[in-house]
């Protein structure tokens, strides 16, 4: 089994921008390449770098792309050149630091300049943030519905007495279930998203349907030129 071809996405000091991450992951997906995210630390730079890799890998996994994350330190051009020698089938490099690599790195280097602030940490922070927010919401709604349940069941006797009086008192159980379904429903909805169970986009569903009926898979390799034998040669 041959190793998959790879794209190398390189950034300094974990400054992967959102554009770069999206572009490299989607490109890898379109080309059916694997992806290696390489974080090059400056020699004097010291900060724990475990979050970035996780986020990168998660994004890639969501798109069905094989992704590895590597951390090296030193000069960015030297590191990339060494890395491509020791890792097989790295086809090209995507980075925001093309200038520094020119003349040293011997494989194609594509530059991607983000029009956002090139602070990658902001992206990571946002991803983390939205997750935190979701967790916060889940807990808040969870507590709210727990409190509502506690309120009803601790006073079960009184509640039952009034709620079953009939007539206009009928409004009470109806309003109660509405209120519960809003609080508890919001909790349930957030809980599933927090667990990573989200709806697949409609387009994706249709695409899946199409692919399953496609007859045969083509080989991954691009067609190569073959020798042509002239049938009239003998004449």
């Amino acid at each position: 089994m041959q190793e998959g071809r790879k794209i190398l996405a390189v950034a300094k000091n974990e400054m992967f921008s959102e554009d770069m991450m999206n572009y490299s992951i989607h490109l890898a997906k379109r080309l059916s390449y694997d992806l290696i995210a390489l974080n090059v630390k400056a020699n004097n730079y010291s900060r724990k770098t475990d979050q970035t890799g996780e986020v990168f890998k998660r994004y890639a996994a969501e798109n069905g792309v094989q992704c590895e994350y590597a951390v090296r330190s030193g000069d960015i051009a030297d590191v990339v050149e060494d890395f491509h020698h020791e890792t097989r089938r790295v086809e090209f490099v995507i980075t925001a630091h093309k200038e520094e690599m020119t003349g040293i790195v011997t494989i194609p280097v594509f530059s991607i300049v983000s029009n956002h602030l090139s602070d990658g940490r902001k992206v990571m922070a946002e991803v983390q943030d939205s997750k935190m927010k979701l967790a916060g919401k889940t807990i808040a709604y969870g507590l709210l519905s727990a409190a509502m349940y506690a309120a009803v069941f601790m006073n079960a006797k009184t509640v039952m007495q009034y709620f079953t009086m009939g007539g206009w008192y009928a409004a009470m159980p109806i309003i109660t279930v509405f209120a519960f379904s809003l609080a508890h429903g919001a909790f349930a909805s957030n809980l599933w998203s927090l667990m990573g169970i989200n709806a697949v986009k409609k387009d994706d569903v249709h695409q899946t349907v199409q692919t399953t009926v496609r007859p045969a898979q083509r080989p991954r390799k691009r067609p190569r030129a073959y020798a042509y034998i002239n049938p009239f040669h003998r004449i």
């Binding site: 997906k29 379109r30 080309l31 059916s32 798109n63 069905g64 792309v65 994706d204 695409q207 899946t208 199409q210 692919t211 399953t212 496609r214 898979q217 083509r218 991954r220």
Partner: peptide
Amino acid sequence: TYALEESY
């Protein structure tokens, strides 16, 4: 399969 289709 989605990735496959795109490569195709």
